[in-house]
Amino acid sequence: MAPLAGIAAHHLAPGGAERFVSTDQRRLPLLERLDRTGVLSLAAEWDPLVAASSSGSPFLTWAWVGSWLDTMGRNADLEVVTARDPASGRLLGVAPFVVKTKRRAGLSYRALRLIGNGAAGPDHLDMPIVADRAVEIGTLLWETLDRDRRWDVIDLDGVAPDGPLARAALRRSTDPGDVVGIACPYLPLAGGWEAVQAGMSRGHRQNIRRYGRKLDTEATGVVERMVTSVGEIGETMSALAAMHQEVRARKGDRGAFSDPALVEFHNAVARRMLVAGRLRLWRLDVAGRAIAVINCFRYGDTVAFYTTGFDAAWSRYGPGRRIMATAIRGAIDEGATEFDFLRGHEEYKQAWGTRLRHDIRLRRPAGDKGRMLWLLRRVAAPLRRRGGRPST
């Protein structure tokens, strides 16, 4: 029987809080589409749901989601549906999406995206659903969203490939669209720092030692420390933003702190992650001033590296390499079994002896306008590659 076969023929109105229930004897979840107030009211239930799911990630926690809603998503057009146990009221799952209006080739269209996604670039995203009902409820939530569809394109970036969202969204292999793998390197820590060193390239291992000794010898007041108080977050995040943007600008990149909205968001996340016990914000100080900062988050047995920056004036001492080593050793010392480098298979990550796994980005048209846009995209792709008009 199809997952929705026993549900009353009633659509959940966008932006409302309407409900429908099972009309047969199965204990189908109670579904509810939430407005912004309803979504914010989930704060106390959100993290317990994530903990009960098989999709753990710092980017699924309320520290991330709530910060995004309060900053970059302040005016977002939310598309959120919850599933609850009809008897106990327990939250069983959430479909946490947003509809974003965009333009392509002069045409306006609406894209379905995940809450907290976009410029912030989170990874390992999913629909948080209790693990023992993930397939059933994931399919139910996805089909509910699809039936009341008000978007033209699905654009889901940084999705965990084996979670309920990927399974539900990819269940029809004949749908048009594309799925692209996103490389996410990680470093096992079970063998301790000695094992990590053994997995590095020889040159990388020697540089960590050489430049570490050089800094300790030639500078005074060299201290590696983790930020543990809310009062230090503002100054440390400001230093991180300035150093990160300077390095990125030299490479021609936009950077993670490129506009005030992103800065506000990252500061909000840091504060919430600290309160939740997940923030791993490390500083490398010389005479009381940060010359390198690395921002990481802990979830379960994993510490995830999110962003970093260093003072280019100190580059001859390898501060970026050193602060990364500090964060990895810190993760080992607190019993973490994995250091997650997140998306991007850059050379500096490979130097640590990382292994590789992949998230996915799923893009797919929905409805007539979406299919037209998808066709335009397919036609335009050869143009972009050749830099001109297609031959006739």
Rank of each mutant, 00 (worst) to 15 (best):
M1L: 13
A5K: 10
I7C: 10
P14C: 13
G16N: 07
A17Q: 15
E18Y: 00
S22F: 02
D24F: 00
R26F: 10
L28D: 12
L28W: 14
L31N: 01
L34P: 01
D35V: 03
A43H: 12
V50L: 15
A52F: 06
G56M: 03
P58S: 15
A63P: 00
A63N: 01
W64C: 12
G66T: 07
G66M: 07
A76Y: 11
E79M: 06
V80T: 05
V80R: 06
P86A: 02
A95E: 07
V98L: 02
R104I: 04
A105C: 01
S108R: 11
Y109R: 01
I115W: 00
G118A: 04
A119Q: 07
P122N: 05
H124Y: 08
L125F: 07
P128H: 11
I129Q: 00
T139Q: 12
L140I: 07
W142L: 04
E143R: 13
R147K: 07
W151K: 03
V153W: 03
I154L: 03
V159K: 07
P164S: 11
A166M: 09
A166H: 05
A169S: 06
A169L: 02
R172P: 00
I182F: 04
C184R: 09
P188G: 03
A190T: 13
A190P: 01
G191I: 12
E194K: 04
Q197F: 00
A198S: 14
R205E: 01
R205T: 00
N207P: 08
I208G: 04
R210C: 08
L215C: 03
D216Q: 13
T217L: 14
T220Y: 02
R225W: 10
V230K: 09
G231I: 06
A239W: 06
H244Y: 03
H244E: 02
Q245K: 04
Q245L: 02
R248M: 15
G252Y: 13
D253S: 11
V263C: 04
F265Q: 00
F265V: 00
G277N: 13
R278N: 09
R280E: 10
R283S: 08
I291S: 11
N295Y: 15
F297V: 02
T302G: 01
Y306G: 04
Y306T: 01
F310I: 03
A313F: 07
A313K: 12
W314S: 04
P319M: 13
T326D: 13
R329Q: 13
R329D: 07
A331S: 14
A331K: 12
G335T: 04
G335I: 05
T337Y: 09
F339I: 01
R343H: 13
E347L: 15
Q350D: 14
A351M: 01
A351Y: 00
G353C: 05
H358S: 12
I360E: 00
R363Q: 14
G367K: 06
L373D: 10
R378Q: 14
A381V: 02
P382F: 14
G387D: 11
